[in-house]
Design a protein around this nucleic acid. Structure first.
Lengths: 154, 154
DNA sequence: CGCGCGCGCGGAATATTCTTCCATGCCAGG
DNA sequence: CCTGGCATGGAAGAATATTCCGCGCGCGCG
């Protein structure tokens, strides 16, 4: 790990996590350093990979992606090639927000955003169960999003 | 819903989702409109809630949150009060990134970020099973993050 | 048809901000 | 004490944001 984070770096990180479009001037004032110093600190956070990117969080319902579904997947075989093929295929599916290889009753957990249940059923039938090596899937429709994509606490 | 999105709005939305710190000038040029128009469009996207916020995505491993865990939760009773109490308590736990009420074998699905397994075991024993109304939890350690928090496709 | 209205556009001007350069202060090692 | 390395803040020129203005277009009404 290239560098450690002092109090100011942490402050900048937290500020940018909450408001990614804060100007450098605003950051500097809140963090209590000069604009020049703040600018250097911020750039370092980007350059050294502490900030992987800055993203506008689009409201899903506003763009017709109001339905959230969690899906547990079990594969036929537990071979490295089997896993690799599945993961390669998953990467093409844009509606998959999360895909994690897990230990437990499932091989993978998926988090999927679609327009509605009908939308999901089509996708499930046409694309999910057709993924390479899939033995079974278990679908958990989300009825209420209590917390979705909360900011990281550090 | 207040307004629809034309081709330019969509372009700006997608650009900002991928690079939330693009300047208005850059946005304008890429979207093919004047800076003034682009500025108005962008502000509307914020004002009308199409963009819920802009967030710097902090690299979890860089800040000591490299471990991801999915947890299925079953409550004792399925009453509205029982759900409400659980949700209220969950909101205080900063390490919970997602908490969704689902239909199926579980009542809730949680996505949790911590430092490591030991960290999680402590939290599980001290905080998760102590949440109001929890009958049982099932833990799925994430062994590989294939896709994490992918941008929305719209 | 012609007219006026509303709307969104781009250009221009001002205010703000970014970005870099430079000189200073601080600290550790010789 | 001196020296080198390093991070800082101030200052200045370049870039940007934000607002104001007049224009053109389409639409509905007289």
């Amino acid at each position: 790990m290239p560098g450690r984070l002092d109090r100011i770096d942490l402050k900048v990180l937290r500020l940018l996590q909450n408001s990614g479009r804060l100007t450098n001037a605003e950051l500097a004032e809140t963090a209590g350093v000069s604009a020049a110093t703040c600018h250097r600190r911020t750039q370092r956070l980007f350059d050294e990979g502490f900030i992987a990117g800055v993203r506008a969080m689009v409201a899903p319902r506003k763009v017709g992606k109001g339905a959230l579904v969690m899906v547990g997947v079990v594969l036929d075989r537990s071979t490295p090639e089997s896993f690799a093929a599945f993961e390669r295929a998953i990467a093409r599916l844009k509606f998959v927000l999360d895909c994690h290889l897990v230990a437990g009753d499932f091989d993978y957990f998926l988090k999927i955003r679609v327009g509605d249940m009908e939308d999901f059923n089509r996708i499930h039938g046409e694309q999910l169960i057709a993924l390479p090596g899939v033995r079974q899937t278990r679908t958990f429709f989300v009825m209420k999003e209590v917390v979705d994509n909360a900011p990281l606490d550090f």
